[in-house]
Design a protein around this nucleic acid. Sequence first.
DNA 1: AATTAAACTGTAAGCGCTTTCAAAATTTAA
DNA 2: TTAAATTTTGAAAGCGCTTACAGTTTAATT
Lengths: 329, 329
Amino acid sequence: MNIYDLAREAGVSIATISRVINNHPQVSEKTRKKVNEILEKHNYTPNAFARGLVIKSMKTIGVLTIDIRDLYYATVAYTIEQEFSKLGYSVILCNTGGNTQKKINYMKMLAEKNVDGLILVGSVFKDKKLNKAISQLAKNIPIVMVNGFLEAENVYSIICDDSYGIAMCVDYLYKKGHKDIIYLQDAKTYSAQAKSEGFSHGMIKNNLVLTPFSILNVKKGLKGGYHAVEHLITCKQNFSAIIAGEDITAVGAIKKLKELHKQIPENIAVIGFNNSIIAQCSDPELTSVDNKIETIGIGAVRILNDVFEGRNVPSKTVITPNLVIRKST
Amino acid sequence: MNIYDLAREAGVSIATISRVINNHPQVSEKTRKKVNEILEKHNYTPNAFARGLVIKSMKTIGVLTIDIRDLYYATVAYTIEQEFSKLGYSVILCNTGGNTQKKINYMKMLAEKNVDGLILVGSVFKDKKLNKAISQLAKNIPIVMVNGFLEAENVYSIICDDSYGIAMCVDYLYKKGHKDIIYLQDAKTYSAQAKSEGFSHGMIKNNLVLTPFSILNVKKGLKGGYHAVEHLITCKQNFSAIIAGEDITAVGAIKKLKELHKQIPENIAVIGFNNSIIAQCSDPELTSVDNKIETIGIGAVRILNDVFEGRNVPSKTVITPNLVIRKST
DNA sequence: AATTAAACTGTAAGCGCTTTCAAAATTTAA
DNA sequence: TTAAATTTTGAAAGCGCTTACAGTTTAATT
């Protein structure tokens, strides 16, 4: 069933059909009603390809995340999807696993599909090849980077000030009397980079000793935190507090600490990041940095929509996190 | 830059351009090479609308989940996306919040966008209105239901035998000497329905007493489990084991049990469902039913692809779960 | 060298829609 | 009642691609 069939049945031209479908005002009430009845009757849905060919928009945006199974990305993606859905857009979701080539392939595919915009969530720090691809693509499609940054035409960033978030943790722990603080870094993203910097700054600012051993590179996930503590103990390193780049890493650390019969927070304080449900599941409940995931998701959508509608948009938006204090500190 | 521009530049016809883009064999090596060079040079990407208009396929499928922030749905969606990506398809993700009308709206939108197929993850049990919409839509688009079932033309199901999964838990607990077992049900999906049935069957099979209080309806999430235990205690109900419909619910229950200084598993045994990362984060680590999420996701993609390629597909596929035993029992 | 077959390329139609421009119908003004 | 202004409608072009069919070139066969 297409526009021609409908036109024939209604005894009008295809132009008229098109007009009522698109709510153009210059159609008489009478014909509008007649056409609408026929549309209803056939439960007609216009062909998006044909329409897209003319309009050049599919009302679709692409979202690239690293791995949707990670609650952080899931929440960002969820928020974006819900917000865009309100605006009549749908989102194509891509899981890149953080792989640059995969990202580029996805971007190319999305370009072919003529998405109206692109949101990249979580970028590797200073990925030259990717950045080139992004600036290239941005010539045709507006791009928003969530927790990533790139100076280029038609690309916009919205980031959480993760650096400040971690610095806040250091301040807080310092006030509680902690001197030997360890930071567990678990990724090499733009965001992870910021966190490390925030840690260093926080330590220095409070005149705490920052050694090359203060920052520990660990694997993602439970095991990362678990093995980190193991390592700290075998190396006989002194520490009274641990800050982890993600809640799950913190929980892994807690697990090992408990096995070693350390009391939390009496012997060792632990702080996580993301303020996810895991922080609440943890025993003891985990103090964690709330990095405002929903705010960021909503912001990303807003930015893109503003661009669509020709409004002026700052190329960088920064959101301030805050510390949620629970039982682990 | 379109096919005409390219044709002019290459000194060939648009048909030839199209042929090399689509790897048709009947193009001479010489012209193929020449055209490819020009394609490269302009970094040309064909217009998917125009192509879709002819081919009637966008190489896109729609996935409806309840809430991607739930790890279960995230994992299903992730698996589906990755598998389809290998086949050259992209997926449009929709979060319905379990709302029937929203589901129907999404389905209509996806139909307009001419998705090649649809996967519905997690259906409410016996939702008449939705089922009607599904059978209607399936006339045009093949639909796969994950953990849902509907007898209709062109709709296929892949489900985990959740009923058996819970029955297994009962068997296991019975062998461990438990008699008073409580089941915490937290949803009204097809899957939740199956779980309750499995519980009842398991209890009866083992000649255990099944009272109306054996099955407790609780809210989703941590609090559901927490309040459930609270309720059991205030009602002075006798129980030595709890089976929860989801890991997070089990963790909530554990939390309250600990507050009441109950030893787990010595005083009370607890079992979760989904075998998610939460089961590993829990302290003690949670025994949980592995409902084979990846297997199901891969299966769903396979089914849809088989349909696309005209192969014969059974209308119902059942996957058997298994019990992962950890420290909580 | 002439004929036939095979390989390659081009023309043109059509996918289903939006939109411009002109024509027809209606309303308003004179 | 007629002319002018306004509202409503329709014809046709074009969006960028695929593909059937016809035409042209090249290779193979006699």
